[in-house]
């Protein structure tokens, strides 16, 4: 699905990712955990194609294609989806118009017929139920005046509508109360399939109680320093990130 090799990324001249390696196969769920400032969000954003991030080394191949050569819109059309940590408010663009444009752009790219108004409406209504979103959100401007939880649900709703091959969830749990977290996680779990992969980026283990990963990686100071199964998340929860930092320090002595 996606193969990240020795990825090095700088932001405003500071090296943030210092050689990340990650291999995700179809249907797998990978969690990336790490303390603040470790480079988790940088990884998510650079994969989605944000311009401010400068790739200084390494390679990323997505479904056999060079991801780093593509603009953000082509990455999305190829099947990559980023659930934003901070979804953007866009006054004046309705959610329904936004999604209709996006769906049809992606369908056109994939050589599929555009959806007409009726087909589109039945699709979005079905997907809204998945994240327990009220239909009134369709006519509202994208994320404008949404609560934190509503914004995150809107991200999962978009994920459901666009049906990507790989979804990167950037701290989707941040700012969510327990009910919102459950709704968001249920939505994601229903979207899991043999073909679709997830990279779940989170600071806390809490989300991983709901979205159970196949693999857990720990990102510290721009590098993945530890990889394991879901039990690694529990270890981190128990001992904190200092445990792994200390272990690192000991290893380099």
């Amino acid at each position: 699905m996606i193969s990240i090799k020795d990825l090095q990324v700088a932001v405003e001249g500071n090296l943030i990712l210092k050689g990340v390696n990650l291999e995700v196969k179809p249907g797998e769920v990978h969690a990336i955990m790490g303390p603040n400032g470790s480079g988790k969000s940088t990884l998510a954003n650079v994969l989605a194609g944000r311009e401010e991030y400068e790739v200084t080394g390494g390679a990323v191949s997505f479904e056999g294609k060079d991801l780093l050569e593509m603009g953000p819109e082509d990455r999305a059309r190829e099947g990559l989806f980023l659930a934003f940590q901070y979804p953007v408010e866009i006054p004046g663009v309705s959610n329904v118009n936004f999604m209709k444009t996006a769906v049809n752009e992606i369908r056109e790219y994939r050589g599929l017929e555009k959806l007409d108004a009726m087909e589109f409406l039945s699709l979005v209504k079905e997907k809204m139920r998945l994240v327990e979103m009220d239909e009134k959100f369709l006519s509202r401007s994208v994320n404008e005046g949404f609560s934190g939880g509503e914004k995150k649900r809107n991200e999962i709703f978009q994920l459901a509508v666009l049906e990507p091959k790989l979804a990167i969830m950037d701290e989707t749990d941040s700012g969510l109360d327990i009910d919102a977290l459950r709704i968001v996680a249920n939505g994601v779990n229903k979207l899991r399939s043999k073909e679709r992969s997830f990279v779940v980026i989170t600071h806390y283990q809490r989300l991983l109680n709901y979205i159970v990963p196949d693999f857990v990686h720990v990102l510290v100071n721009g590098k993945i320093v530890e990889s394991g199964g879901k039990e690694l998340a529990l270890q981190l929860e128990e001992h904190g990130y200092d445990w792994i930092k200390n272990e690192q320090a000991a290893a380099t002595l």
Binding site: E73, R75, R77, P87, I90, F98, T101, A102, E105
Partner: peptide, 16 residues
Amino acid sequence: EALFYLQARGIPKAKA
């Protein structure tokens, strides 16, 4: 930010 958000959903830059 809004421009990137729209692009990240597959909408080409000019259209966004």
